[in-house]
């Protein structure tokens, strides 16, 4: 493996605005980090099964029953802006 990370492009994928200084610093630091993690490229991994998480639980089912959940107001209380029972958003769609 030998890949180069393009921090500006990846940050856009991650919906993360960066200042020019952040771009430079992260570019340098992440090139070093990516070079380090590419160490796993040394291993022959043919035929090895992946481990998704710490235990081998698969397909956990439950009964499909309705249970009460936390009230709407609790969640609305954390909204940046609200309008009665709705979350209010800035207008982001351009006029036609």
């Amino acid at each position: 493996m030998s890949h180069t990370i393009d921090v500006a492009y990846v940050a856009e994928l991650a919906r993360l605005a960066l200042t020019p200084e952040e771009k430079d610093t992260f570019q340098q630091q992440l090139e070093t980090i990516v070079r380090y993690v590419e160490k796993i490229g040394e291993l022959d991994l043919d035929g090895i099964e992946p481990t998704m998480h710490g235990q081998s639980v698969v397909n956990v089912f439950r009964e499909d029953v309705v249970v009460p959940s936390v009230g709407r107001d609790c969640f609305l209380a954390n909204a940046p802006e609200r309008n009665d029972a709705e979350i209010r958003l800035p207008k982001v769609v351009e006029d036609a």
């Binding site: 993690v37 796993i40 291993l43 991994l45 090895i48 992946p50 481990t51």
Partner: peptide, 12 residues
């Protein structure tokens, strides 16, 4: 190359 391989390393 990354996530897929890292999960296999977990197995090892």
């Amino acid at each position: 190359a990354y996530y897929g391989r890292a999960q296999k390393v977990r197995t090892l």
